[in-house]
Amino acid sequence: MNRKAECCCGQLSIEVYGEPYLHSICHCNDCKKRTGSAFGISSYFKKDEVVAKSGKSGEYSFFHEEKNHEQSRHFCPSCGTTLYWYVSSYPELIGIAGGCFVEQSLGEPKYSISHGGKLPWVKINESIENNA
Rank of each mutant, 00 (worst) to 15 (best):
His69Gln: 14
Gly58Lys: 04
Gly107Met: 09
Asp48Leu: 10
Leu93Glu: 06
Ser112Met: 07
Glu66His: 10
Trp85Leu: 13
Phe101His: 07
Leu93Ile: 05
Ser54His: 08
Glu70Gly: 10
Tyr86Lys: 05
Phe75Thr: 01
Leu83Ala: 05
Leu119Tyr: 04
Ala52Ile: 08
Asn125Ser: 09
Ser54Gln: 13
Lys118Arg: 10
Asn125Pro: 03
Asn131Glu: 01
Glu103Met: 12
Gln104Glu: 15
Gly55Asn: 05
Ser57Met: 07
Asn68Pro: 00
Ile124Ala: 06
Val102Asp: 11
His115Pro: 01
Ser112Gly: 13
Leu93Tyr: 09
Lys118Leu: 08
Tyr111Ala: 08
Val50Asp: 04
Gln71Trp: 11
Cys100Asn: 06
Ile113Lys: 09
Lys110Pro: 02
Phe75Gln: 03
Asn131Trp: 03
Glu66Ala: 09
Thr81Ile: 11
Ser127Val: 10
Lys53Gly: 02
Asn130Gln: 13
Gly99Tyr: 10
Ser78Pro: 08
Glu129Gln: 13
Val50Asn: 01
Ser105Cys: 05
Leu106Phe: 10
Tyr84Gly: 04
Val122His: 13
Lys123Trp: 04
Ile96Phe: 05
Leu83Val: 09
Asp48Phe: 11
Trp121Val: 09
Lys53Tyr: 04
Tyr90Glu: 11
Gly58Ser: 10
Phe75Cys: 04
Glu65Met: 06
Lys118Thr: 05
Gly117Leu: 03
Val102Arg: 15
Gly117Tyr: 02
Glu92Gln: 14
Lys110Thr: 02
Lys67Phe: 06
Ile94Gln: 05
Pro91Lys: 09
Lys118Gln: 03
Phe63Tyr: 14
